[in-house]
Amino acid sequence: MSEETKQDDEISLLDLFAVLWHRKTMIIIISLVAIICIVVFSIFSLVLDPEISPLPNVYTPRALMLINNASSSGGGLSAAIGASGLGSLASLAGVNVGGGQTYSDLAQYLVGTNTLLDSVVDKFDFIKRYKIKISPRASSRKALKKNLTASYDKDSGVFTIGFTDYDPVFAQQVVNYCVDYLGNWFKDLGLDKNVMQKANLEQNIQNTFNEIRRLEEESHRLEQSVSMAYGSGGGVSIMLETQRIALELSAQQEVYKQLKVQLEMINVSIASESPIFQVLEKAEVPDQKSKPSRGMLCIIVTFGAFFFSVFLAFVLNAVENIKKDPEAMAKLRAKKENVRIYRED
Rank of each mutant, 00 (worst) to 15 (best):
D15F: 01
E223N: 11
D118I: 11
S293C: 05
N57I: 07
A34G: 04
V319M: 07
V58M: 12
A34W: 04
E216F: 11
F314C: 03
G295P: 12
P56W: 06
N68I: 04
I341L: 15
G87I: 13
A271L: 09
A83N: 12
G157Y: 00
G75H: 10
A80F: 00
D122S: 04
V40W: 04
S119N: 02
E3H: 08
E10I: 14
V179T: 12
E254A: 03
Y59M: 05
A328P: 02
L263V: 13
T242Q: 07
I212V: 02
A93N: 13
D15I: 06
S12V: 15
I270N: 06
L13H: 06
P56H: 03
E254S: 03
Q203C: 11
G233A: 05
E223K: 10
Y130D: 01
V226T: 08
E3S: 08
D9P: 12
G87T: 04
V121F: 05
D325H: 08
S71R: 14
N267F: 00
Y256K: 02
D122Q: 14
I238W: 12
L89V: 10
Y103S: 01
Q262I: 02
F209T: 12
Y103T: 05
L259A: 09
A334Q: 14
F170Y: 02
P275S: 10
P275Q: 05
V301I: 15
T60K: 12
D105R: 09
S42N: 05
L77W: 02
D155C: 13
Q101H: 11
T242D: 13
E327I: 15
C298G: 09
D105G: 09
S53C: 11
C178S: 03
P50Q: 13
F209E: 15
G85A: 02
L297E: 06
L117H: 11
R244N: 05
A251S: 09
K289M: 07
K131C: 04
K145S: 14
V33C: 09
G100Y: 02
K193F: 09
D122R: 15
K123D: 07
L332W: 03
V175E: 00
D118C: 07
M296K: 13
S31C: 07
I205P: 10
K133D: 04
Q173L: 09
T25M: 07
S72G: 00
V261G: 13
N194F: 13
V319G: 07
P168A: 00
F163L: 03
A83Q: 10
S53H: 05
K6H: 04
D188N: 08
N68A: 08
S42L: 00
H22P: 11
N317K: 03
G231E: 02
I52Y: 08
F124Y: 02
S140Y: 02
Y59V: 05
E51N: 12
V226Q: 06
L55I: 08
V58C: 01
N267H: 14
I35W: 03
D49E: 07
A271V: 14
Q108S: 15
V268I: 15
E10H: 08
V236T: 12
K123P: 00
V179G: 06
Q173C: 10
S72F: 00
